[in-house]
């Protein structure tokens, strides 16, 4: 808590934390948007969400090793993950899509462990990052630094999100996805191939995560075992914002980014992960407590 004094003495530091938090929060929001999509359409909470993000990061990392600029690698990350998403859907998810939620949680948790360990075998447990070659802006008499790559990542995240939104609103596939989300049985009766819709949705989510992963590896670091933190962040954002509320997702993503940055600064970096997972517990308990006063149950 020593850092609290620092914040009081030099409030400009909180500006730094705020800006970093907002920028990184947009990436969280992007991953959360994908989770909300799968949850809403297929009624599956994808625990492997974070591993998809990290894997997307590794794809960009590998391409960058061959000299490709990380921003150009984003489509490749997304595409690779799209294919992986399709594969995972065909092999596993298709068999659990109509089963109870715990089965899907456990199965995707299995996928998550599998991917983690495969990444660990291939890339080792070392922390990796990719240099974007972009500079830094200095604000407030050089007290606050803003990495241009973070700003770029934030913009890309918002653009990808916006494109997706338009895609879901206007395209035929998007309409089929939204129809299935509302009532899968009715959609099936009306001739929508829900199996195809599910496959597309799951793969699309993986692609979104892949893109988010590219942004993570550019702005931060990746490591095979930090995926679950992204899953939990996405989950928190979705339950705060609710399903199908895009602006809520962006707002709570940024809020989470800022909160996490402040917590990491105040509690020390070693407790930042602990903070994320504790926050999950606190948010869930708090929400159920509030509902209980209204004689309702969180479900």
């Amino acid at each position: 808590m020593d850092n609290l004094e620092l914040l009081i003495v030099a409030p400009v530091f909180s500006m730094q934390l705020l800006i970093d938090g907002l920028l990184v929060g947009s990436i969280f929001a992007l991953a959360a948007y994908g989770m909300a999509l799968v949850w809403g359409v297929m009624n599956i909470i994808n625990i492997a969400q974070g591993e998809f993000v990290i894997l997307g990061g590794y794809v960009t990392f590998v391409l960058a090793q061959y000299g490709m600029h990380p921003v150009l690698a984003i489509p490749f990350s997304a595409l690779t993950l799209y294919v992986l998403g399709l594969l995972v859907y065909r092999i596993v998810i298709v068999r659990i899509v109509d089963r109870d939620l715990f089965i899907s949680i456990l199965a995707t948790f299995g996928i998550s462990i599998l991917l983690q360990q495969v990444m660990n075998q291939i890339f080792t447990a070392d922390v990796q990052t990719v240099e974007s070659g972009l500079g830094t802006w200095f604000l407030f008499d050089d007290m606050v630094t803003v990495n241009q790559v973070k700003v770029l990542a934030c913009l890309i995240a918002l653009v990808v999100g916006a494109v997706l939104m338009v895609f879901l609103k206007t395209s035929r596939t998007g309409q089929a996805i939204r129809a299935t989300a509302q009532n899968a049985r009715a959609a099936r009766i009306l001739g929508i191939d829900t199996d195809k819709v599910y496959a597309t949705t799951y793969a699309l989510n993986a692609a979104i995560c892949g893109a988010a992963g590219s942004l993570v590896v550019m702005t931060w670091v990746i490591q095979p075992f930090i995926g679950l933190a992204y899953t939990v962040r996405s989950f928190m954002i979705v339950i705060i914002a609710g399903l199908g509320n895009v602006f809520g997702v962006v707002a709570s993503g940024m809020m989470l980014g800022v909160t996490e940055n402040f917590a990491g600064f105040l509690l020390g970096a070693e407790f930042q992960t602990a903070f994320i997972f504790s926050l999950l517990v606190v948010i869930l308990v708090w929400r159920s407590w509030r509902l209980r006063r209204k004689r309702q149950v969180l479900r």
């Binding site: 909470i45 939990v232 999950l280 308990v285 159920s288 969180l298």
Partner: peptide, 9 residues
């Protein structure tokens, strides 16, 4: 007090 998947997560 949490139910189902909320409890699990």
């Amino acid at each position: 007090k949490l139910r189902g998947h909320y409890f699990a997560i």
